[in-house]
Design a protein around this nucleic acid. Structure first.
Lengths: 196, 196, 196, 196
DNA sequence: AATGAATGAGATTTCATTCAT
DNA sequence: AATGAATGAAATCTCATTCAT
């Protein structure tokens, strides 16, 4: 029943947008009475929260696979792979993601998928520890904080916005480059030369 | 009167969020009748649009000054300066910016201040032409597109989100680095080495 | 519930006129919430339409009986009977009829009860075919068109307006005469004499 | 100024209908302030009343000429002439007349132009006295009352409604016939034969 | 006299939420 | 557990009318 209601919520969101999302409409779409909806969800907000949490979990699931794959790859390739999977996942949840970003009263900017960001940050910490072990921990955190924002925002842009004249692949490439550059102070030992 | 109404709109937005923004509430806050509000604004949307336009213009004004200053500076310093000013400006318009980003049905994801992004992109094009003249135009556009998203999103994060344990300055530094790295393929002639 | 709302609508119409007919007032009069009103009627217009349709159907029902009776009577008696019943029916629906005629934005002048007029016209066509078979069809239509206006208007006047010093019966008599005269070119073979 | 306001009222009525008639709109159309409008008219109702009175007077003026002409004509021709002029006059005031009939809260059914009806009745009394001198006075009044309704309603129909497949002239002819028949019990001495 | 900005009651309509069945 | 009719606060917007200038 909960699943049916959440599925209906997602569909209404896709078809009518956040402004057109009413509890009655959701119940009707779900083939359920409003009363039942309120048996399983305290209020409209909880309904939305739950849907977001589930979408987040979905994305997270796909992401976890990608992260597992990524550890076996060269750094930049791994990052790229993760980003590509994230973009795909967001596209698959396009409707809900879009509706939420545009309109839902989230109260956190860009943190549409906080769990995703957290998980990504977790793995990124390991990545940084491996590829830039000498980096000061506080400095590393700062870079990760920033990089997460950049990565999520970039992926959302790539996934949801029509890029004029630029292929999605190229954008993912660039983002991957950017992340590696941003996270690892000197990915190719340039700093040695640079420091001289 | 228009100013009073817009000021009231901003305040209601701060106190109640976008969802709590009603024309009656705005009128009351402004100490004005609803009728008057509708004398000056055709409808609720126009009211919001006007507020956004004004905020946008304000930010844009401050940004323009920063961009003018920046041309006389070394590349990275110029970029940093612009970002710092942008962060400050967004902080000063925190309330409206935040409300609009989170909740206003803008239809452009993260692109809350389209004018700002456009203006920034314009100048960035020149920056790229100067500092990476050999870059393929399409490639340059892709990088700028991405960089604008990154820059705005990063500035918004810095301006609006409590950064745990990291100074704002450090984040701006990192963002500046990132932008330079992202926009100019090989700021230090690294690619020569890279190619071998 | 629908009935209660419609009854309330009729009552408000009687007491306050069309201009004083508000959905809130109707709901209050019906002892029902506005929300309920809107559960059963899509909008104010539908409410009014439904009331008109029902009144129309009521009048039509009574009219149909009268028309059935009338066929078995001599022409003038039949006409008179129909008119008398129509007057009575309109009087019984006085409030709604009056409000609608005077004020509802119908777009058809005097044609308040289009169904009634149509039904009446239908039977009148047969009447004419029987009593004035030699009449040119176009001419017959013209006469019927006119007669319907006359009949309805006359009945409305009789039903709704205080006739000073004239009995209702006498007015109905006169109207019946008029209709017979108007519909049948020469009810008593006068034209033969006339032609000489 | 009064004239300007009334002219503006008429124009707004034509362009926007009764529902679109607002005092502010009228004032604007007249190039006058609302305040001024309220200096000359106690309220909106008075404005409308005055406009109706003036339209009525206009129609009345044209009618008076026709009535003067009519006295010199044979009965039926005179009646026909008056009706034709009335139809023309109503057509010339079509917009206002139509708006008023359909929507204005008149409170009197069909009595849109009470002065016109009264004047017409006055002359008709003379007509009846001349052409049916033996008619009982009460009976005469009844016939006149009815005939006025018929005449005005018929003229309004002819003037304002698209008659499908029937010429306006023919309808006026029929109406004239009807009125003569209705007013004079036996215009051609038929009753003598009838009475036997 | 004239202006027109300001008023505010009131109209239509929506929708989250409740509760008797 | 489930239903869904009923609720009513609240939102947007209009417009007749007033009154300080």
């Amino acid at each position: 029943m909960i699943d049916r209601i959440l599925a209906a919520t997602a569909q209404v969101l896709e078809e009518r947008g956040y402004a057109g999302l009413s509890t009655n409409r959701v119940a009707e779409q779900a083939g359920v009475s409003v009363g039942s909806l309120y048996r399983y969800f305290a209020d409209k907000n909880e309904l939305i929260e739950e849907l977001r949490a589930r979408s987040s979990a979905d994305v997270l699931g796909e992401l976890t696979g990608a992260l597992t794959d990524a550890v076996a790859m060269p750094a930049r390739d791994g990052v790229r792979h993760v980003l590509a999977v994230l973009v795909g996942s967001l596209q698959r949840h396009r409707a809900i993601t879009a509706a939420m970003i545009d309109e839902a009263p989230l109260g956190a900017h860009g943190n549409i998928l906080p769990e995703v960001e957290r998980q990504l940050a977790q793995v990124t910490r390991i990545f940084v520890a491996v590829h830039a072990p000498s980096l000061d921990p506080a400095e590393a955190e700062a870079r990760i904080h920033l990089a997460m924002g950049v990565a999520l925002n970039a992926c959302l842009r790539i996934a949801l916005q029509p890029a004029p004249g630029i292929t999605e692949d190229r954008l993912i490439d660039l983002t991957a480059d950017l992340m590696v550059l941003g996270l690892v102070p000197d990915p190719l030992g340039r700093s040695a030369t640079h420091a001289e």
